[in-house]
Structure formats: C-alpha cells, structure tokens
Design a protein around this nucleic acid. Structure first.
Lengths: 346, 346
DNA sequence: TTGTATGCGTTATCAG
DNA sequence: CTGATAACGCATACAA
C-alpha cells in the first residue's frame, strides 16, 4: 500500500491508456455493455479494480443530468423529532445510494427560499422539506415543481401544493388526547396552542376544540394560550403561570401543542406545588424522550419520526426513479399512525 | 411571471445566442473580468439577471475541481450534543456559501469507512468527522489526507492523526467534577465509564482517577462500571442497580460518562427511594437539555456543542481556502472550554 | 467487437 | 476588447 506522493486521480482515460484501448471501450466494459468481448471486459474490470477507479461524479452528473443527491430542509436540527426524521432519511438514502444535503430554515421563510434555490442550483434530484412556521407564500415550492424536481413535504406541509405528503393526523391525535382527559372527568381543559400559521398547530387546536364540543363541554377561548415564541420551554413555563393567574383552580387539565411546552408548564406547576395530575392533568405532544424521565412522567402522543422520515424518503426515491424512467407518478398522501402514550401526568 | 411549460434551463450559451456574443465573452462579463467593455458587461448582466441565470454547478465543479460542498460524519444524529454541533456547522457553511452532506456512522467502523469513500467520490472540498467508538484503524483518515483533502476531527478524535482537531479537555473536566464531589465530602465515588476504545471515555476515566489520587482517596476499581452498550439510558439504569447490589450504602457519589447514563441511574435510584443527592450525589457529562428538567435537576458539564461545531467548521473552511490559494497550513488543535454546572443532584 | 466524434456547461489560454 | 479553441471526465449515437 505505497501510495507515494501525488497519487494521480485515475480516470477512464488512464485505464484506456494503460490497456491501449479507447475511452469508449473502457466505459462500456465497466458498465457491462453487451457489445464488448468478455476478454477485454475482464481486462478492464481487473485493472479498474486494481487502480481503485471511481467515476468522477461531477462528470457523471454533468453528462447524465442527475446527481444522486437529495436535499432536505428542516426548521431545526436541534430537535428530537426532526433528528429522528433525519436519521431515517439518511438511512434510506444510503440504501438507495444517495447522499443528502441538509439545511435548516430556522423557521425563517426567506432563508428557506434561499436554501431551495441553493439546492436547485446544486442539482439535487429531489427535495424533502418540512416547512417553516412562517412560510405562507409558496412560490418557492412551485418553482421546484416547475423544474420537474420531485418534492415531498413532511410533517409541516402546505395543503395547497399538489405533491406527495407524509404526516400524522394532527386533528385526530389531539382529539384522542383531549377525549381521554374528558373521560377521566376533566372539564376545564386548557390548551397551549402553537402559532396561527402552521397547519399542524391549527389542526391540533381544532382537534382539541372538537373533542370538547363532541362531549358537550363549552369551548372557552380564555383557556387557549397562543405559544408562538421560539423557546417552547420558556413559553410553556410563562403561559402556565399566566394560566394559573387567570383561572386559579378553575382549570383541571392542560393539553399542549408539544412536549417542551408541557415540560415548561410542568416545571412551573411543580415549582408552585400544584400537583400533576391531581390538580392539573397534563398531556403533551410528540413523545420526546425526555417526557419519560421528567417527574411525573409526561403523557404524550407518539409521532413516529422514524417512520415519517422513512416513508418520505421512500416516496421521494420512488418518484425520482420514475421520473428518470419517464413514468408519470401521482402524488400520494401518507398518514402515519400516532399513539396516545399515557404516563403519570394524566 | 409566466414560466410556461418546459422552462428551458438557461446557460451561458443561451445568453450568448440572444446577445449575439460568444460564450467566452459572456462568461467573462459575468465575472467582471477587466477586459470586457462596460457596455457589453451591462448587457450581459442585465439579461442574465432577467433570465435568472445560475451557473451549472456540475460544470463548474468539473472545471474547477472544487465543489463548494463539505462532508460531515457524526456517530448519531439523534443526539443532543451532535445535533448542536451540526447546527453550527450548517450555520457556518451557509456563511461561507458551502453546502453540507451529512452522514451518520452509527458507531460502525465499516460504515464510516464506506461513507468517507462516498464523500471522497462526491468530490467534497473538506471533511469534518467525529469518529465512531469502534474506530481504531485509521487508514480511511489517512486516505483523506493522502488525497490532500482538508480534514478536521472534532470531539471524538484520533490522537495519532496529524490534522486539526477541536475538542474539550475531557480529563480536566472530569477531574473538576470529581474534585467538586470530594470537596463536598464524598469519599466513595463510583464512575460509570464509556467504552475502552474511545479517547474521551478514557480521558474522563483518567480525570476521575486522578482527582481521587490527588485527594488521597483510594482508587477502587470495583466502583468503576463499564458502559459500552448503545443504549445509555438502560445502561445507566442497570448499572445503578448493580452498583447498589455490589456496594449497598458504601457508595456516596456517582460520576458518569454522560448525562443519559446519569439519568438512567437517577431513574433507578428514584425508583428504589435512594435519595439524590443525600444518599448518592450525581454528576453527569455534556449538559443535555433534559438534565435541567429531571428531578432532581442533574449537575453536569457543559460541553459547548455549538462552539465545537463552529470552530471546527471555521478551521475547515480556512484550510480549504488556503489550499485553493496554495498556502500551506499547519494543523491546529483547539480546546473548547467546559463548565461545571451544579444543580440539585450534587 | 471496437473506436470516432460529439456534447454536457464552464473556465482558461491565447490569438485576433 | 472579443472570440476561437481546448479541456475537465464521462456517455452515447454512429461508423468502421
């Protein structure tokens, strides 16, 4: 293994020279074209192997108009749910011999837009994206589609874009959680909702509301708190404080948009000796790992990040594949199952 | 904005045709070469703008032998510390107009090796990597260097590779934590150590040991538990159980390789009503967010993932830059500061 | 069965 | 100041 100094990069031409063949023949031999003799094919393959030949990916991409690369945009990487999604996207990409360029929009629409341009410019074969909370203009997504690049939205989707989507049923999941609280006898159920723009924030709120109405409980908008800051934990803490100030003990349960909000709230409640779940029952959303180690352990809704990532990637690769083969695909919408996990907080 | 149907991709040639210029001139005009008249330069720029021209990155890469892409390999993405590192790498990359290909080795040496080959093949301009726990053979790293590709190791490094490195002082940090415990009067201090191979596991252990010796406390190897499974939480739980079985109340403190181990242990101790910190004081390592929300809150060592990522990326981009300019750089080693965070568990 | 010519989109060298 | 021409490395239609 003496790779002395400059180690010239080895190309088809190099192999061709050494074997006194044409570049064409070498190229064909390596791809097992039918029209090259077994003998030369073997010679070529042997030498290529020995020289450790790997095709220059830029040349291939330039020639073939495909990059074997996909782009992934998430709002945040320091995020239990999204990191699970990323984990399985990476796994799936690897299986398919793809590589992934990762970006985070930081919940910033302008950034998201710029990143899409960058991905497009990098010639990715497809794009997976979970939209920022601030995204309402969708021209950047339309641009992707106009270019014929396969696009799959996951988790934080845009209803009006006609592409494949992978998500959970937020409304149903929220409905289930709140219904559980009601069945347990709670009547004054508060909700810490997410921002007004994101679809899943809206849907979770609607699920909450519907559960109340279906069980003949008045919807009291003063029990709904808007949490659209970027620091969920603090937001949960502060709004729990406000909740108690506003309603004293005239509130007996709380359902939050996500686990961090719930844990922030839990922290406040613990700090003022309001007992969870005796005084106030609590259910979060997403089932982050830490929910199982706080005191009391937090009930939550398992959101299956791994499965969402896996399914999204599978669909994307399928669409990319079809595109190269000239097959037209119809957008599909996958709803991944959730599960209400009851722990000690409710 | 009527981008009717097939929207031909726009190239230098296209612009050249429309303006009846040569491709060469257009190329030069766009790069503000001195030797092209202001007039044509303006014409070209205007049209390029209007047509929304972006250079084909494959062609540029092929021609320039640079990709404006770096590769990043971490052992895991579902990991609070690494996701922070990734966050700041992405941020830094964006600043420098680079894009990052992310991979996770899953603590698997063979995979790590394959991934490096893939990155090399993709023509990345540089590589950032935190080694898998199982990595001891370093040929794959040497290969990167042999190709002249800038390489920066962070957090989980290999001592014998001569490249830039960014890490914390594990030994000192551990020393500080254990010294704190000793000053508080603890004498029977257990340690849940990481695997035998990773350098930071070794160093944290050595820091622990040295703190004992420097304070005239006998080192008792029966108080050291090896935790090298992949599920730290469970490992912490089980070994806490074993610890109590082995030593009963003849142990008064525990210092663990990481926070998840500590939280696993905490969970066990809580479950059998052993009081933390009264019966056993506890300090973790890394200061994961959840450490601040468990009960009791967990003392830990802040590892500054953001700073590690930032510094690593900065060094890498600097080295890439120098390389293109033909400047030789010397590897640098950065030690990022840690901080002992005392909470209620100690 | 093998090889020639051409082009993918850029940039760089060198004439004009 | 402008433009042919070549080259980066590969793949394919077409010739031989």
């Amino acid at each position: 293994m003496n790779q002395s100094k400059e180690m010239k990069t080895i190309t088809l031409k190099e192999i061709a020279n050494q074997l006194e063949l044409s570049v064409t023949t070498v190229s064909k031999a390596l791809k097992a074209y039918p029209d090259v003799s077994k003998k030369t094919r073997d010679r070529v393959k042997t030498l290529a192997e020995k020289l450790n030949y790997v095709p220059n990916s830029f040349a291939v991409s330039l020639r073939m108009q495909k990059s074997k690369t996909i782009g992934v945009i998430v709002p945040e990487t320091v995020h239990y749910f999204f990191s699970k999604v990323i984990d399985s996207i990476l796994k799936e990409a690897e299986k398919n011999n793809y590589v992934v360029i990762l970006m985070q929009s930081k919940e910033d629409y302008e950034l998201e837009k710029k990143q899409i341009d960058l991905l497009l410019n990098k010639g990715v074969d497809g794009i997976l994206i979970s939209l920022s909370n601030k995204t309402s203009n969708l021209d950047h997504l339309k641009k992707i589609q106009a270019l014929g690049i396969p696009l799959v939205l996951f988790d934080k989707i845009a209803k009006t874009i006609n592409c494949s989507k992978v998500k959970i049923d937020d409304r149903k999941s929220a409905y289930e959680a709140v219904t559980y609280l009601i069945k347990k006898g709670h009547k004054r159920i508060a909700h810490f909702r997410g921002g007004l723009n994101p679809q899943n924030s809206i849907d979770r709120f609607l699920g909450y509301k519907k559960a109340l109405l279906d069980n003949d409980i008045n919807f009291d908008s003063s029990l709904v708190y808007l949490c659209d800051n970027d620091s969920d934990f603090d937001d949960g803490f502060k709004n729990a404080k406000k909740l108690i100030q506003d309603h004293g003990n005239n509130v007996d349960a709380l359902f939050t948009m996500n686990d961090l909000l719930a844990i922030g709230a839990l922290n406040y409640l613990n700090s003022v000796n309001i007992n969870v779940p005796e005084d106030i029952a609590l259910i979060g959303f997403s089932n982050w790992f830490m929910s199982s180690v706080v005191t009391p352990t937090l009930s939550s809704i398992e959101q299956n990040g791994y499965e969402i990532g896996e399914k999204s990637a599978q669909i994307l690769f399928h669409e990319i594949d079809c595109k190269f083969k000239g097959i037209i695909t119809k957008p599909q919408q996958i709803i991944v199952d959730t599960e209400l996990i009851i722990r000690n907080s409710s």
